[in-house]
C-alpha cells in the first residue's frame, strides 16, 4: 500500500512539474509588435471594446463565464456551434471616431497544441465601413499568452480578478508573417486582397464575468491591395 501511495504522490508531483514547466516555459512567447508596423504601406486601425457589455451583441452557448449580451439574445447551444461565439461591435478609428461595424465569428481550432503554447481559434470578421465598403478578414488566433497572462492569474487570484497591463498580437496566420487575410467585398475594397493583424490590450479581467477593461484593434493594410479580378 505504501508503495502505491508513493507512486501516486510521485506521479502527481511529476504531472505538476510538467504543468508548471508548460506554464512558465520561457521559450513560448507572443509578439507584441504587429508585423505590419514595419511595413511601409499605410495601415488603418479599427479599435473596438472587447467587453461584451459594451458591444452591440455578443452570444455564445450561454454557459461560459462571459454572458451573452443583450440578455434575450439567442444562444449557440447546438453541438456543432456550441464552442462558437458571435460578436457584433462598433468600430472606431485611432482618433476615437465611429467608423463602422464589425461582426466576428470565432471557434476553437483543432490545431490547438498546448505543448507548443498554441491555444488556437479560427475567426472571421465581416466588416462594413460606411462610405468605404465591406471586407472579410479570416485568421487563426493564438490565445495562449492571453490565457496564461490574464485569464489564469484571474482564476488564481483570491479576489477573482486580474488587473495589470497586457498587450499582445492575437493573429497567428494564415499569412506567412503571421498576418490575417483580407478579402474585399464592395466599395473601395471591391476585388482586393490584403493583410490585417488583430491585437488585444487588457487592463482588467474577472474570473466571474470575463473582460472588465479590454480593447481590441484591427490593423488593416490598405494600399498594397492587389486586384484579383482585373478583367
Amino acid at each position: 500500500m505504501k508503495y502505491l501511495i508513493s507512486l501516486l504522490v510521485g506521479t502527481l508531483l511529476g504531472a505538476t512539474l510538467f504543468l508548471l514547466g508548460l506554464y512558465y516555459n520561457p521559450f513560448v512567447g507572443q509578439a507584441s509588435v504587429s508585423p505590419l508596423a514595419v511595413s511601409d504601406t499605410p495601415v488603418i486601425d479599427l479599435i473596438y471594446s472587447a467587453v461584451p457589455g459594451e458591444s452591440i451583441l455578443y452570444t455564445n452557448n450561454g454557459e461560459s463565464t462571459i454572458a451573452p449580451f443583450p440578455d434575450r439574445v439567442g444562444e449557440l447551444w447546438e453541438p456543432a456551434i456550441v464552442d462558437t461565439s458571435a460578436w457584433v461591435t462598433d468600430l472606431q478609428s485611432s482618433r476615437g471616431e465611429w467608423v463602422g461595424i464589425g461582426i466576428k465569428f470565432s471557434s476553437p481550432s483543432e490545431q490547438t497544441r498546448i505543448v507548443h503554447g498554441e491555444a488556437m481559434a479560427n475567426s472571421v470578421w465581416h466588416i462594413y465601413l460606411p462610405e468605404k465598403g465591406t471586407f472579410l478578414i479570416d485568421q487563426t488566433e493564438n490565445y495562449w499568452a492571453y490565457l496564461r497572462d490574464v485569464v489564469i492569474p484571474a482564476y488564481w487570484s483570491s479576489s477573482d480578478n486580474w488587473r495589470g497591463t497586457y498587450h499582445s498580437i492575437m493573429t497567428n496566420g494564415p499569412g506567412s508573417l503571421g498576418t490575417a487575410r483580407l478579402t474585399g467585398g464592395s466599395g473601395m475594397y471591391a476585388d482586393s486582397i490584403s493583410e490585417a493583424v488583430e491585437s488585444r490590450t487588457a487592463r482588467g479581467y474577472s474570473s466571474t464575468v470575463g473582460p472588465i477593461s479590454m480593447s481590441g484593434s484591427l490593423s488593416v493594410a490598405i494600399s498594397n491591395t492587389e486586384v484579383v479580378n482585373a478583367e
Binding site: 508503495y3 510521485g10 511529476g14 504531472a15 510538467f18
Partner: peptide, 28 residues
C-alpha cells in the same frame, strides 16, 4: 517508487498533452 512516479507523471502528462486532442469539434 517515488522517483519512478515522478518520471511517470512527467512523461505521462507530456504524452497526454501531446497526443490527446484538446479540441474535438462536433461534425454533422
Amino acid at each position: 517508487t517515488f522517483v519512478f512516479g515522478i518520471i511517470l507523471g512527467l512523461f505521462g502528462t507530456g504524452a497526454l498533452a501531446y497526443f490527446a486532442p484538446v479540441i474535438d469539434i462536433h461534425r454533422e
